[in-house]
Design a protein around this nucleic acid. Sequence first.
DNA 1: CTTGGATTCGGACTACAGTCCGCTTGTAGG
DNA 2: CCTACAAGCGGACTGTAGTCCGAATCCAAG
Lengths: 203, 203
Amino acid sequence: MNPFELPVIGVPTERADAARNRQRILCAAETLFARNGVAATSMDAIALEAGVGKGTLFRRFGDRASLALALLESSERDFQESFIRGPAPLGPGAPPCERLIAFGQALLSHLAAHGDLLLAAQTAGTPGKRFDAGPHGTYRAHVITLIRDAAADLDAEYTAEALLAPLGAEVVLHQLRGRGMALTRLAAGWESLARRVLTTPPI
Amino acid sequence: MNPFELPVIGVPTERADAARNRQRILCAAETLFARNGVAATSMDAIALEAGVGKGTLFRRFGDRASLALALLESSERDFQESFIRGPAPLGPGAPPCERLIAFGQALLSHLAAHGDLLLAAQTAGTPGKRFDAGPHGTYRAHVITLIRDAAADLDAEYTAEALLAPLGAEVVLHQLRGRGMALTRLAAGWESLARRVLTTPPI
DNA sequence: CTTGGATTCGGACTACAGTCCGCTTGTAGG
DNA sequence: CCTACAAGCGGACTGTAGTCCGAATCCAAG
């Protein structure tokens, strides 16, 4: 291989055994998460079930949160696709306030469906990490745009994070499970919250 | 002592050595937190510095979060006192919307002043625990009352937690440190957020 | 002062996330 | 097919929160 050219495109072609192990690990994690729950499954157990060393597990996925994220990959991609390019009111076409309401409600459903996994993905060892890695950045950029379109006088960057906070996994799962609030109630509460924030108040 | 009567009042009189150890532990924790930072100080190190066994440390304070909370006790009490019985607009007397704005801004200052400690207090090992123990319950009750007074048509329970979410330690410290947003900016953003939510929109 | 027994002490122990490094293996080039 | 070496492997190791239980201690009552 010409040492002055990169192989094909950035990606240095993953070795066959590495790819096989990645699959084994994902499969083992899925099995154990389904059998015993996400919170009760240790990384050691996943490595054992996958027939792989612990070092391999962490080499592939970095940490627990990233492994959870990898398992969510396809549904996460679908979700992002739906609010970026999907049909209105989630996707483009609807007025920004309606899009924001739909976004929050879709995220609430996403959380209800994949709660434990999303919780694990957002519970990084180092606090604050979840804001830098993971899908948060995409959500944030989307919400900032919607706020700018709907209410130019707001501090969009601040408001985006403020509105994203009650859609975090820990908060929502606490409301759903700890407080026994129904998903429909959260959806309704979010709608009136978002509508009030994006509606310019009378002077 | 008459075995049919409790000593004085519920509290079964703490033993002298236990009280002494509690003080030693609090003092050691304060020292080490100040010297090396909260995040970099382990429970082992605190026990060692206090000249106390690890079991004693955990017997007294239960876990890391509760120890952090114990260190915050006096400033936390002052803060709660100020919004429950203090002067307006934080305390009673001002209209509920102004009180809510002042509450959020005071909480933001509280976070800016005691960030690391509050972060440790809110980063419980078991996710969601921070909503059940600690000051969150008091904040929640206060905000629910204010919302009920200001906007009867809102779901006060949902809205209280939604508005408290962007005042959580992890979020605020991320904004202050990770994003470099100034405290005054957060205070201004919170004000317009709270004002919009509590102001009934035109039909 | 002595004693009885509940309370507390302390450090060994468990479980877990994440790191490290010497050994193995797949693969590209000959 | 052979070879060299980068990539990958695995499990021992570290550091941490939190648990447990036999031993030591304190306090009240006599």
